[in-house]
Amino acid sequence: MKFDSWSAFWAMGGYGFYVWLSFAVTLLALIGLVVATITTKKRLLREVKQKQARAARRKAAQQLENTL
């Protein structure tokens, strides 16, 4: 599609509002997915580290108990 000017490009033949709104909604959805993925990854890694630390503490406590 060829446009004569930038304003014609932004107007998109009278459908610019809907075109750009759809782009904005899609971009927001993609950004939301990226943010949700990153926060979920951080939360899962934090939980794994906590479980590993708990397992290490339990093992240390059990070894200490066995020496008594």
Rank of each mutant, 00 (worst) to 15 (best):
R54T: 03
G13D: 02
Y18R: 06
A56M: 02
K49N: 03
I38R: 11
T67S: 15
L28V: 07
F3L: 04
K2I: 15
Q50L: 06
R43M: 08
A8L: 11
Y15H: 14
M12G: 01
K42D: 08
K51A: 09
K2T: 15
T26H: 03
Y18C: 06
K42A: 05
L68V: 13
R58I: 08
L33W: 10
V34H: 07
T37C: 10
L33H: 04
Q52V: 01
E65M: 13
T40I: 06
T37R: 10
L68G: 09
V25P: 00
K2S: 15
A29K: 08
R54L: 10
A8F: 03
R43S: 11
A11F: 09
G13L: 02
S22M: 09
T40W: 10
L28T: 07
W20H: 03
R57C: 01
A60N: 06
A60W: 03
Y18G: 02
A55T: 02
F17H: 10
L27C: 08
R54A: 09
G14M: 04
F17A: 09
S5K: 08
L33T: 00
S22P: 01
Q63P: 00
E47P: 00
S7Y: 13
A8K: 14
A11Q: 10
M1F: 15
G13Q: 02
T39I: 10
E65D: 14
G32H: 06
L30Y: 06
L45D: 11
V48E: 10
S5L: 07
V48D: 07
A11L: 14
K2M: 14
R46W: 03
A61S: 03
V25A: 03
G14K: 04
A55N: 07
K51R: 14
K59L: 12
A55C: 01
Y18I: 05
G14F: 02
A11R: 13
K41T: 11
